[in-house]
Amino acid sequence: MSMADMAFLLFVFAILTTVVGMENGVPVSLPAAETGQRLPRERVVRVWVARDGGVSIGGGRVTDEEIRAVMAAKLEEDPALTVALNADGDVSCRVISRVLRALQQAGALSIALTSDSRGR
């Protein structure tokens, strides 16, 4: 096997692993923060809050009731889950407060407010 073949094999492998790791999210403009800690790739549930206040978990839009139901089911499978809240920086705190309350009621207490390290 030549070096060129090896380079392309590595390239294809890197593409595949990246694509598999991506989630079907919502386009959001994350708020900037300097003190954010790196999130683990495993045992994380991503909750997206779009600029218009719509909340989605794993693709489809959900209501507060559905947030509670989905998160309760996920926590039953793995109680050590962390919720990564990917919320748009322009969303009002009213929406964030509502989502955090729904997560709290579902028993999801470990939260990470996902931020962008490059903005500040």
């Binding site: 990564a84 955090l100 709290q104 939260i111 990470a112």
Partner: peptide, 11 residues
Amino acid sequence: EQGIPLVLPRP
């Protein structure tokens, strides 16, 4: 990904 960690109190 990075984020500010929070631990919410029980309801």
